[in-house]
Nucleic acid binder design. Structure first.
Lengths: 344, 344
DNA sequence: TTGTACGCGTTATCAG
DNA sequence: CTGATAACGCGTACAA
């Protein structure tokens, strides 16, 4: 009952009157150990209640089987789906996840990146904070050739890979769809243009307008954090305009803002889609609950998470060369629902 | 440019012509090191690009500053909020999180628990899988006195603590509220009774019926996984009953099932709350998007996460005795919204 | 205030 | 197939 000391491979070795080296090898089922001995070792391990000490092993083998995940926030539908996908893929390959959030704060992002490095993660998965300008804080990883995978909110870098969707094309398609429905005055509720996702969506939107000879006005481009409140504020902004000057279409860069905008607009008596067609982005569950259902872009966090981790691990195992390509683009289809259907 | 070797405290020591021991002490700002020397060490560390090796340190000090988090799923609103809260609290105290999901599978839960132990987490936070029967797989933690904190889906155990809400009281209140609104035939869409949360909610519901002299019928208690599909199926079940035999109230053990039930019922022409009053559980964002808004129970994952981690860390730091109490109950208030308001 | 010497538990290397 | 031994990077008695 003296359960106070760790049970180590030495205890097993002594117990079986063999060497610790053999125990170590036997424990990982090395074929260079007699099958019979292997069995004895496994049994003894259980009998003695042995539990391997991961970081003693890591210290020696210089690999932790751990991936660092650094995201802006943990509690959004997209992100929690991405994490779920990552965990699934990681688990499948015997890797584990250490997770931190920057809360959209570069400073926290830097501190967390350093922590991940100190923990000697075998690879880093990162989606950048709202106002991260450069990625100097990732230099330690690049220097030591620890693979970094950006996803969603990325930053171009030669020695890393990005997993993204084609935000430009998706936004273009959304806008074109609204135009096809007869919208002529389309407002865009977007995010910080510093981040590729919002910049690309904005550009896709603008290009679609241009290609259809529709004028773009600066005041139709609202920048926000795309929160519930931001959706609300956008609605109030629209309602503050004289009816003749109001947009007849709204494309929000996420579903949260779109939905809360809709609710506020509807509360004020506007009809959707008749008075104003609305489209969002992400295919968040809320898009199927709001009435009318929200037109959006299918953006699977799960897929993105699985892809990011699988590629990272393949690279770690030398199966694929991470840097042979710089970017993986996942598909993200337009999902048309009633909120944007002015015609039939 | 030969950045291929780790920079260790020995490199700093050699660089400064002092001993590694002093460097080690200086790095953690020990007052037993000359202030001037300390400064030199810090500077040299930066100059040489030193990054401490966490697990070498852990191996020596036998503490990892890492907490294990083991949950059924990562991608639910409640759970991602709880994780966000945990990360926030952990980060605040210099702890980090290693996260895994059981995907509601006991086998995975066991494997993951073992991994967490092998990684020598300083403490474990766990919410049990759907069908976990016993917690023998946590024995290694108990034996080595590594603190375990259960949250949400808990299991009574002397050497651990549980962070919960009063599910019984909350469910009682929901049911009483429905009764107050005139409901006489209340159906309960619940989860697996093996889990405290669903069992307690069921019992609260039943007791409220009893206290109001309303009959309970077995067939009014539906057990499911509380998924979108389960909500749908429950609705179809209700619709399959002859109108006179249908319930006039529905209490679902989560908002997802409640909302998707509502949508299906409404699609079939039932009016909510007139024909059927509905209440859910969790105060998920979707409860404020469905029309009419869903009556529910406010259940803050963020709070629960913060509470669980803070208590765990206080215990680790010896500030509080984890086991002086066996359970912390957070408040969870009824939020009345239109979906249940038959009267005014 | 600083240095010496050793150990944490594992794995790699080399020899047999 | 197995064993002896050193090393991974750090922390800490103990001594100076």
């Amino acid at each position: 009952m003296a359960d106070d000391k760790e049970v180590t491979i030495y205890d097993i070795a002594e117990y079986l009157q063999i060497s610790a080296a053999t125990v170590s090898r036997g424990l990982k089922n090395s074929t260079s150990v007699n099958k019979h001995t292997r069995k004895k070792i496994a049994d003894a391990a259980i009998a003695l209640g042995y539990q391997s000490n991961t970081f003693a092993s890591s210290l020696r083998s210089k690999s932790t089987n751990t991936l660092g995940v650094l995201v802006p926030r943990l509690n959004s539908y997209f992100m929690s789906s991405a994490l779920a996908g990552m965990e699934k893929a990681a688990n499948l390959h015997g890797y584990h996840l250490i997770i931190a959030q920057s809360l959209e704060d570069v400073k926290k992002e830097k501190v967390n990146a350093a922590t991940m490095f100190n923990k000697r993660v075998d690879g880093l998965l990162i989606s950048l904070a709202y106002d991260t300008q450069d990625i100097e804080h990732l230099e330690p990883f690049f220097k030591r050739k620890i693979p970094v995978v950006f996803f969603d909110r990325v930053h171009p870098h030669n020695d890393s890979i990005s997993v993204v969707i084609d935000n430009y094309a998706a936004a273009y398609n959304v806008t074109q769809h609204l135009i096809d429905q007869g919208c002529k005055r389309i407002m865009h509720l977007g995010g910080n243009l510093l981040r590729n996702v919002y910049n690309d969506r904005f550009n896709g939107y603008r290009q679609a307008l241009k290609d259809n000879n529709l004028p773009f006005q600066d005041k139709w481009h609202l920048v926000s954090t795309l929160s519930e409140k931001a959706g609300d504020a956008a609605a109030r902004h629209i309602l503050s305009l004289p009816p003749a000057k109001r947009p007849d279409g709204l494309f929000a860069a996420n579903d949260t803002a779109a939905v809360h905008g809709m609710i506020a607009l509807q509360a004020a008596g506007l009809r959707i889609p008749q008075d104003l067609a609305v489209a969002g982005f992400n295919n968040d569950p809320i898009s199927k609950i709001i009435a009318p259902n929200l037109t959006t872009v299918d953006y699977s966090g799960d897929n993105m998470g699985i892809t990011a981790v699988t590629n990272l691990i393949n690279h770690l195992k030398g199966i694929s060369d991470l840097y042979s390509t710089n970017s993986i683009t996942l598909r993200a289809d337009l999902i048309v629902r009633a909120s944007s259907l002015k015609k039939g």
